[in-house]
Amino acid sequence: MDGDFELVKAWQAGDDEAGDALVKRHFWGVYRFFRNKVDDAAEDLAQRTFLACMEARGRVRPELSFRAYLFGIARNQLMLYLRRHHRSAHLFEPTKTSVADLRDSRADVKLVRNQQQRALLLALRQIPVDFQIAVELYYWEELSVSEVAAVLDVAPGTVKSRLARARDKLRERLEQLELPEATLRSTLSDLEGWARSLRDAHGLAEHRSR
């Protein structure tokens, strides 16, 4: 990712072209970072992240990759947001509290292709936020363990053990989800209830009235 820091510098100097290039290049990663953690604020937080990056509010550590720097800022924005927007904020502790713990409304996993993915996204929200960040950055954004460690500001060994623990938790949840025959039967015998619960979960209606 050579050139990203140069783009930041050019943007700081007033070159919007450079800023735009930077946003285009990194938008999807940043957006993904927020979208499974906050309800409607992903767009806003992504914008704040890029602005904070330009204003050099993150600690620049030249030995780190730009992406580790960027996600470090994103994490700071997320923490600010979570602390500000949840009543139980004084109890908030990123290594203990999960996104799901903080929500007062039921999680809304939108627009996913299958139930397994949906289940996993829900499960990710139920592990502590820093664990969730570690998993998502490692698997989705393909950051290295040391990059993840920099984002979370912990030692690489800590990241490894957190990843291992997170995987165990998620595996457990997925195994519960391998639908056994019995579940299938009970599901079918109440088609209506089943369809209803899914509809409620998705908030889906072909033409939702305003």
Binding site: V23, K24, F27, W28, Y31, R32, R35, N36, A42, E43, A46, Q47, F50, K110, L111, V112, R113, Q116, Q117, L120, L121, L124, V135, Y139, W140, R167, L170, L174
Partner: peptide
């Protein structure tokens, strides 16, 4: 499974990018 669960690019995101 974890890798595959990565949310896809979608219209909502595209709209967010346009907005930003």
């Amino acid at each position: 499974v974890l890798r595959q669960a990565r949310p896809s690019r979608d219209l909502e995101g595209l709209r967010a990018l346009v907005g930003i």
